[in-house]
Design a protein around this nucleic acid. Structure first.
Lengths: 463, 463
DNA sequence: CGATTTGTGTGTATACATTTG
DNA sequence: TCAAATGTATACACACAAATC
């Protein structure tokens, strides 16, 4: 019997004691999942503390801890020492962003594409590659990380982005997301922790959850992640890696300042974190600002895994990215590559190389720069909001009323033919400054114009 | 102080007590890794039992268990209740099979290719696809699991292999290995167990280790895995899934009999295991035997994940496989697909569809059948060994002297210009019947002839 | 066949670090 | 500023199941 009577004691969750079977912790986890699913337990509610619930159930508090821990692992719960355990914002609803099941006739401001009209530049290269006399050598298992020729071209391109490396330190992977999978599988184990910006790329959050890695949110300002907060968090718990999109954070659009990069690098070096640097926006930033920003790969070459995506840059349907890794992890990275992909499509890799060594690169850069500039100006016309510190992002955010739920705003707009995403998708716990993210690069300019006009008209009801 | 003096007591491993720090289990794990690395602890040696070592170190035996458990998880150790804990066969040396770093002028009997000379049939389809007026729609983020048209073609092909399903239950993935990654990430958690044939595909073993899944070996006979042993093992510990290559086990080459499939299906249904059915060899088996074998997908459609690889069948450089899944896991599979790949190359997918809906399929089948037959006859000419129960495999095995080590035989042959693999690569613990595996489909017939002649001459020294 | 050995699963005790108020 | 509340990490006790001899 419990020592105290809980009849009047306010517990935010009272699992049905009679349903509790052995093993206790599994049974408790199951009850919790059921109650979250049936909304008996609401999102963001605080669960009873481990000791309270244990007392109520008359079991040891660490057993409750075990049950809660599983919930944290699969992203159902999050905990804060001192303040308690909470049901996640995104418990049981997927925040994965993809182009799956888009309704017809919808304006998609959700998934960030890259001005797909530019794919016309790619088509001649497809034909050229398919007529290449050496193409047969791309259709077999040879050179699983890329041919020497392809890697040499990649190395040259990387140099223009401030990444100095050797062909032995580059692996061709099937897009950035695939590269992230390889890095996380190769260098981390279940339960490891990775620090990220308080708002970050949803699919990174989802991938980490799939691999049972814990995400640690660190706050940022306009110059990027705040070094002191990172240092503090590192002291608090063991953190193993850190994920950045330094040129242009997704969804906020901030660009890390040079000094901030250095400050963060110092802490990262001391704490020996692996840096996962997803520089998907670098191609445009380097071009538009006409200067190379100091990459973490250049600041901390021995602990940085750098991903140069070719999908947003050249073509999203050809799945290619280059993964730059330090010598120390070569065999781990290779192993993960071979065991997840075997190899990246030889044809895709050769088309991308063909483009990279042609003048098409410049044409695409000029055109994407023009379109991005125009799209941002269009956004500025409709909304009086400051540009983020990267002033040519592919997406912009608009603050909304904290009382409006994610489902409400996303579904209401979907009903009006517009897909956009609530800030909840880009984080793991409740935040004080909700917003919606509008992708600017996923439609041609007149459709963008149309869509923004609708948003401008409808949005005030949510602000 | 330990209760007993261990001065004369024979312990197969005596970790340095003075180096033991807190936390004990981590420290112990580290000592173990170091000693395996430095060969102070030899492969296949039996470690002291949990209780023995605990007594020696004067700690609780479950703490030793914790340390051992980590070793099991990362494939360093394996345990058997009753007989103890052992250092793995493949501890700390990679068994991943890939085409990486092949020396020049080597005859590769290691990696199993698929008569790459047949890639000539593919080239016209590359050109046709690149000239297709609709190709632009393949270069963006649309239809991440495959276009309706592509999936309809896949569905038709699957039907010819005895797989009845709907387009909503097919996902286009980037090759079989990629499909396996997606399945394992989507349906299993670290620590889960998957049953496999006592000898099975190395890259599945490696992938499982990367995801911290435990492999449970089950013995087989010429008809396939032995049902009683599976049932027994399921009772012993909780098993969550089972992996099969039913048409043609790699490396043994056995083909599961119809009755065996049914017997196994009964147990699997009762034990509620996920079936991972890698039917990479089905295309040739169905063609050569002119009949469709009963797939697990047809026997247990609600718990089978079926992979139809297009790489061995049509072209290895274009990375495409079709993953067939039951309704119940659609959202999990999609999530894993989007978060590992985003999508499979639209161009690759469209080339494969183009081939599948052409007469080239038949041409390739005829030619690969002819080559496989000729290659096996060549092998029979040099070696008087029975065919496995699938009598047209892509590889054959030759028994060797158990005293010969893996490194010894693999390296000796490499020095003679031949790459082949020892049976250790296809399992996780010491086996009584070692052999080498010779890939028959990785070279043209005259090179195969040349290589087999060398092996015939050299091998007796190892038998 | 049955005592013994060996590993496994589960719940708990305890020390501790961080946050809250 | 510090006591109280809260979660975390580690080691251990114990019941048990399977294999060995």
């Amino acid at each position: 019997m419990p020592i105290n009577s809980f009849d009047d004691y306010p517990l935010s969750w009272r699992p049905d004691k009679t349903k509790l079977t052995r093993p206790l912790y599994k049974s408790l986890t199951k009850l919790m999942e059921e109650d979250i699913l049936s909304s008996k337990l609401q999102k963001n509610t605080r669960l009873p503390s481990q000791r309270e619930l244990a007392d109520y159930l008359d079991i040891n508090f660490t057993t409750v801890g075990q049950a809660y821990k599983y919930g944290v692992e699969i992203g159902l719960l999050y905990t804060n020492i001192g303040s308690g355990t909470f049901v996640s914002q995104n418990a049981l609803n997927s925040i994965t962003i993809s182009n799956d099941k888009v309704q017809e006739h919808i304006i998609d401001f959700g998934l960030v594409s890259s001005f797909e009209e530019c794919n016309r530049f790619v088509i001649p290269h497809l034909e050229a590659a398919s007529r290449n006399v050496n193409i047969a050598s791309q259709l077999n298992y040879q050179d699983p990380l890329g041919s020497p020729h392809q890697l040499a071209i990649a190395q040259q391109w990387l140099l223009t982005q401030g990444i100095t490396t050797n062909v032995e330190n580059i692996a061709t992977v099937s897009g950035v997301q695939n590269g992230l999978t390889i890095i996380l599988m190769a260098l981390f184990s279940p339960g490891d922790r990775i620090a990220v910006d308080r708002y970050t790329y949803s699919n990174f959050i989802e991938l980490a959850a799939l691999l049972h890695l814990e995400i640690v949110l660190i706050d940022f300002d306009s110059e990027g992640m705040i070094p002191d907060l990172l240092a503090k968090e590192c002291k608090k718990k063991k953190i193993d890696g850190i994920f950045f999109m330094p040129s242009c954070n997704n969804p906020i659009g901030f660009q890390m300042s040079d000094s901030r990069r250095q400050e963060l690098a110092d802490i990262i070096e001391q704490e020996r974190l692996w840096v996962i640097e997803d520089d998907i926006h670098a191609f445009l930033t380097t071009y538009s600002q006409n200067k190379v920003l100091p990459s973490f790969q250049s600041l901390l070459p021995n602990q940085t895994l750098y991903l140069a995506g070719m999908t947003k840059f050249l073509c999203s349907g050809l799945r290619v990215a280059y993964l730059v890794f330090p010598d120390s992890v070569r065999s781990l990275i290779k192993k993960a590559c071979f065991n997840t992909n075997v190899k990246t499509s030889g044809f895709d890799a050769s088309v991308i190389s063909h483009i990279l060594s042609s003048s098409t690169v410049q044409e695409i850069l000029v055109e994407k720069y023009r379109l991005t500039k125009a799209a941002n100006e269009l956004f500025d016309y409709y909304f009086d909001l400051p540009r983020p510190s990267n002033d040519l992002p592919y997406y912009r955010i608009i603050p909304i009323d904290p009382a409006v739920t994610q489902g409400q705003i996303e579904n209401d707009f979907l009903a009006k033919g517009i897909r956009l995403y609530h800030s909840n998708r880009f984080t793991t716990m409740e935040q004080k400054d909700p917003f919606i993210r509008i992708a600017l690069s996923s439609n041609c300019l007149d459709v963008l114009d149309q869509g923004l006009a609708i948003i401008q008209k409808v949005l005030p009801a949510y602000q």
